[in-house]
């Protein structure tokens, strides 16, 4: 495993820890999109179907379990926890997330590396992950007071995607026959979605002012 890949996984892990920290210790999920969190839970459930079928490494298995458990825990907190659920900004989290699941599934059926159940689910999860951040970005635009933890959560999530692209470039030149068009194109689309957020995040950090996204 190269350094970009490890750094990418670690920033992904940090993003989840930051979000859980906010929810668990502050007992607030203000500014966090439940729609995005539900999509991530679905993404991991679909992608990690191979968890008990095909073993890669202990690292791989542990990370998969962590991302599965954390995504479902976050959804549970936001839906069921009696204090946390009251802080959920339902009125502004209106992105119709169900409508992007079906097109991703169709795309998975049409564009996959092999027409088997697991491969179709894998491709579906890749397409869905690419757009899963959209409800969160829309909610951020509508949020007056974006707290630091929420902004950091999205920043680390975006950083993870950027690092994965560097990882692919590295692997392309160092490993023979390492070509994954589906994850590369979907990954680049996913990373581009963060462009606007990154711009305003870095600007707010440079000027030492609170993050605000123009509507």
């Amino acid at each position: 495993m190269n350094l970009f890949r490890l750094a990418g996984d670690m920033t992904h892990l940090v993003s989840v820890v930051v979000l859980l920290l906010k929810i668990h210790t502050i007992k607030s999920c203000a500014g966090v999109s439940l729609k995005t969190q539900e999509l991530y839970a679905l993404v991991f459930a679909a992608r990690y179907l191979d968890l008990f079928v095909h073993f890669v490494s202990l690292y791989n298995t542990v990370m998969k379990l962590v991302f599965l458990a954390s995504s479902f825990t976050i959804v549970w907190y936001m839906r069921r926890h009696k204090i946390v659920r009251r802080t959920y900004d339902k009125e502004h989290d209106t992105f119709r997330h169900h409508f992007i699941v079906l097109p991703c599934l169709v795309l998975g059926l049409l564009l996959n590396e092999k027409f088997t159940f697991r491969e179709v689910m894998w491709a579906f999860s890749i397409y869905l992950e690419a757009v899963a951040i959209l409800p969160q970005l829309v909610l951020l635009q509508r949020t007056r007071n974006i707290d630091n933890l929420t902004a950091q959560y999205v920043f680390f999530l975006g950083a993870y995607r950027v690092l994965y692209i560097f990882n692919w470039i590295y692997r392309y030149f160092t490993e023979p026959h390492f070509v994954h068009w589906i994850s590369w194109i979907a990954g680049i689309v996913q990373t581009l979605l963060y462009g606007d957020f990154f711009y305003y995040y870095i600007l707010s950090w440079k000027n030492n002012v609170k993050l605000e996204l123009p509507a």
Binding site: H12, D50, H54, S57, E113, E119, Y164, H180, S183
Partner: peptide, 10 residues
């Protein structure tokens, strides 16, 4: 190698 066996990323 099979398609799924080449996937070691998360």
């Amino acid at each position: 190698k099979d398609a799924s066996e080449r996937k070691d990323e998360l």
